[in-house]
Design a protein around this nucleic acid. Structure first.
Lengths: 247, 247
DNA sequence: GTCTAGCGTGTATGGTATACGCAGTATCGC
DNA sequence: GCGATACTGCGTATACCATACACGCTAGAC
């Protein structure tokens, strides 16, 4: 009665919320969504995201490939739930931090949660509205942190967009540098600076060349974490000024 | 002599810079990297990124699948060059804008360039350091815009991280809403608000619930562009305050 | 004129997601 | 108790995919 024809959100996501009533007939189910997802996470942790195939996950569970499709409609659903499980819920916030330190903590925790399973970086591109329990829990915590400010809700969401975008930027680059286990990837970063010198020769790309000459790409350039903190603080400065302007 | 054993960067990228000396022997080449890439872009524009297969691109050019491998070592290289070609170079900046309006313009142009080919969103995850001509041209323009400020080069780079992360956030969500042509995706957004009401029932996720009750997810919520502008302005406010503090 | 590097192509390999049908099982309505 | 039935896990089959490799040919180098 409630929904017209089909479900708007996949059954596997409803199941992740525990909203699915038990089916009553037929044989007992031999697997659990949770077991499937954590097996897939284990595979990704051990052998990378590319190693996660339906048959590999099935084997890992002592089941067949096709058994998984009794729990998931597509592989995409599995990936969505893997991201949700790997990132996990946000750690509880210390009390009385104030919104600014709260958001700092939120962003730092999110960065850490993602980098704890570097393959999650490749799943951050949203395929639809955020709908899984942990993803929404992170969003919820962000909004709670801003609750006592005078920011309207849409500004809170826009702020979340800004901060999470920055986190994404940072983890993407970090993952590209450190996660990449392909041969030659380290060499690529080592030879990056000379490469840039080459392509900025003859007056091309003067802005980039100036940064190079200032040593911004050298070995003694700041750690990527410094870039993360810098951007985060500037963003929060801007938000703070705006909040103040609201009285 | 210059490089020890192999090239750190793929030959196709060197070719994109026009740095490749012509090979002299053998039959004339029937194709061009440029022709291959633009054929692939055409396929992606018409039928989506999933339709871009080596055989499809080969067919599109009247060639065989394997001919492409004389120009590209892997499909990944093709995707990298597709992104570079689709985004294109940054539009020339109006003179005398000042850094703040310059960065606003930069971010807005970048957003527009990405959304002009929505499939590029799925290629924004960096696979290594940015090395293609147009990507570096965007970075260069960003750095040029900040050239007259007292910001040290590493802060300029960190600022670029912040702004481009925000652009990514925004285009990702925009693409997830509008680009998604799968059946049921529109319904999914339509039913998103009721879905959130359901999972925030019983006191769960109170921050999110409050935002819901404030109408932040309703049909009359601000356009996503408003969120983009809000975040961008806050970020620039923070950068501006920091620049001022440098004297 | 011969040599050979580089070209385009056809075929083969090992992988992928997933549609479909089958045989068995456990609960429901009676 | 006893079908009927809905659901289970699984084996097979399909249609892709990227790409390794070997072949015959072409055209510049010597």
């Amino acid at each position: 009665m409630d929904s017209e024809s089909g479900e708007a959100f996949p059954a596997s996501i409803e199941a992740a919320w525990g909203l699915r009533e038990r089916p009553h007939k037929g044989p007992k189910r031999g697997l659990t969504l949770e077991r499937i997802v954590s097996a897939a996470v284990k595979v990704a942790d051990e052998d990378g995201l590319d190693a996660v195939s339906m048959s590999r996950v099935g084997n890992e569970l002592g089941s067949s490939t096709m058994a998984l499709y009794r729990y998931l409609a597509t592989k995409d659903e599995l990936l969505t739930l893997m991201l949700d499980a790997a990132v996990g819920p946000p750690p509880p916030l210390p009390e009385g931090l104030g919104w600014r330190r709260g958001l700092e903590s939120w962003a730092t925790s999110m960065r850490a949660a993602i980098l704890a399973h570097p393959w999650t970086v490749h799943l951050l591109m949203p395929k639809g509205p955020p709908a899984t329990p942990n993803q929404l829990a992170w969003l919820d915590q962000f909004l709670q942190i801003l609750q006592d400010t005078r920011l309207p809700a849409s500004a809170k969401l826009a702020t979340q967009l800004l901060i999470s975008g920055h986190v994404w930027s940072h983890v993407s680059i970090t993952a590209a540098i450190t996660l990449d286990t392909e041969p030659g990837s380290l060499r690529r970063w080592r030879e990056y600076e000379p490469f840039l010198r080459r392509v900025t020769g003859g007056g091309r790309l003067p802005g980039l060349r100036a940064a190079l000459d200032e040593g911004a790409f050298g070995d003694d350039a700041g750690a990527p974490d410094d870039h993360f903190v810098f951007g985060l603080e500037r963003a929060l400065d801007g938000v703070e000024a705006h909040i103040r302007s609201l009285g």
